[in-house]
Design a protein around this nucleic acid. Structure first.
Lengths: 117, 117
DNA sequence: ACTGGTTATGCACAACTCGACATATCGGCT
DNA sequence: AGCCGATATGTCGAGTTGTGCATAACCAGT
């Protein structure tokens, strides 16, 4: 029997909308924080700007929170920066995710590993 | 801010193959145990026989374990029953899943709920 | 004004998944 | 030998999701 590993895709949903927030959007926020730009963030994550833009809006609409402040035009073209709410979400989700990852690892050791002789 | 809930898609992967075992295949095994037939199992889960059959084979191939014993022909056409290994997997995965679900709930309360004023 | 880089947004296209359909095969019973 | 219902498997089409391309709007600086 081969060696396995447990994976877990985590996300939050509201009553009406699936995938309000999850790993992808979390990484996106982090990348925005790091780069100061939605375009640069999408590049660094190797996803299309189109998707990054859509994801960000979806999260904001669904959560009804301003996670970022976007600015068009100007000498540098524009920028996107996190709001304090956005930073809180990164922080909270990061811990949430870490808690779950840890639990998954433990549960795997406890429940599954025994089956793999 | 709206009420959210945390979701978690769990699965096991081997080095080469994604999705070796997960909720879908777990439910499939349970349904097979309950019905004694792959066809009936697929019906009760409202998935196509085609998919059920493919999933089952994929799991067995990837785990390199006989989870079920299939029998073609005969007066009742055929049947599919779990092996003792199959039963062990149901049991183990069920507990694994429950552990993780519980942890997700706790982590959600601890890390996320505070953000939702 | 003009420029350059970014945000904003629609649309057509490719990849992937899954379901529906079509057949073929199998093997106790009658 | 023929039947019947389940397993076995390929194939085509629909729905979903993300990418790529095109284009517009924006605006501090030169």
């Amino acid at each position: 029997m081969k060696r396995l590993n447990a994976k877990c895709k985590l996300w939050l949903s509201s009553k009406n909308i699936e995938g309000v927030f999850g790993d992808g959007k979390w990484r996106l926020l982090e990348a925005i924080d790091r780069t100061g730009s939605l375009r640069e963030a999408s590049k660094s994550l190797q996803i299309s700007y189109r998707k990054a833009w859509g994801d960000l809006n979806k999260a904001q609409d669904a959560l009804n929170v301003a996670l970022v402040e976007k600015q068009r035009g100007g000498n540098i073209g524009g920028k996107t920066t996190l709001t304090s709410e956005g930073k809180k979400w990164i922080e909270a989700y990061s811990k949430f995710r870490a808690d779950v990852e840890k639990a998954v690892g433990k549960a795997y050791e406890k429940r599954i590993e025994g089956l793999l002789k």
